[in-house]
Simulated assay, not measured.
Amino acid sequence: MSGPRPARLRDGLCGEYLKDCGLSRHGEVEEVAALAAWHAIENACVTGQTMMVDGGL
């Protein structure tokens, strides 16, 4: 996710992640919120699933 990163992440780790990430960028809070809203409001037929929000890894 974009924004401040936890202090425990070493320098360069985010860059290494982005090299392997399908989107080549950090996710946005709004993208996760859109999935949660769709699942809670518009979805009537998906149950018992895990929705992966991992940037295409």
Rank of each mutant, 00 (worst) to 15 (best):
M1Y: 07
M1G: 06
S2R: 12
S2W: 07
S2L: 10
S2G: 08
G3W: 09
G3Y: 05
G3N: 07
P4Y: 07
P4L: 13
P4G: 12
P4W: 03
P4E: 09
R5W: 10
R5I: 14
P6D: 10
P6K: 02
P6F: 07
A7W: 11
A7Q: 12
A7N: 08
R8H: 14
R8I: 06
L9V: 04
R10M: 05
R10C: 02
R10T: 07
R10Y: 02
G12T: 01
G12E: 03
L13M: 14
L13C: 05
C14W: 11
C14S: 05
C14P: 00
G15D: 15
G15F: 01
E16D: 12
Y17L: 14
Y17D: 02
Y17M: 15
Y17V: 14
Y17P: 00
K19V: 09
K19W: 00
D20P: 00
D20G: 15
D20I: 04
D20S: 13
D20E: 12
C21S: 07
C21F: 03
C21E: 13
C21P: 00
G22T: 08
G22W: 10
L23K: 01
S24M: 04
S24A: 14
S24E: 12
S24L: 09
S24Y: 06
R25Y: 09
R25A: 08
R25E: 06
H26L: 15
H26K: 04
H26W: 14
G27Y: 02
E28P: 00
E28H: 15
V29S: 03
E30K: 11
E31I: 01
V32L: 15
V32F: 11
V32K: 01
A33L: 10
A33D: 00
A33R: 06
A34L: 05
A34Q: 06
A34I: 00
L35P: 00
L35V: 13
L35G: 01
L35I: 09
L35H: 10
L35Q: 12
A36E: 04
A36D: 01
A37G: 01
W38K: 00
A40V: 09
A40H: 08
A40C: 13
I41S: 09
I41H: 08
I41V: 13
E42P: 00
E42M: 05
E42A: 12
N43K: 02
A44H: 13
C45N: 10
C45A: 06
V46F: 11
V46Y: 10
V46L: 14
V46I: 15
T47L: 08
T47D: 05
G48R: 03
G48P: 00
G48F: 12
G48A: 06
Q49H: 14
Q49M: 04
Q49S: 13
T50A: 14
T50L: 09
T50H: 10
M51P: 00
M51R: 03
M52L: 13
M52S: 07
V53H: 14
V53A: 15
V53K: 02
V53M: 14
D54W: 06
G55A: 05
G56K: 14
G56M: 05
G56N: 10
G56R: 05
L57P: 02
L57Y: 15
L57I: 11
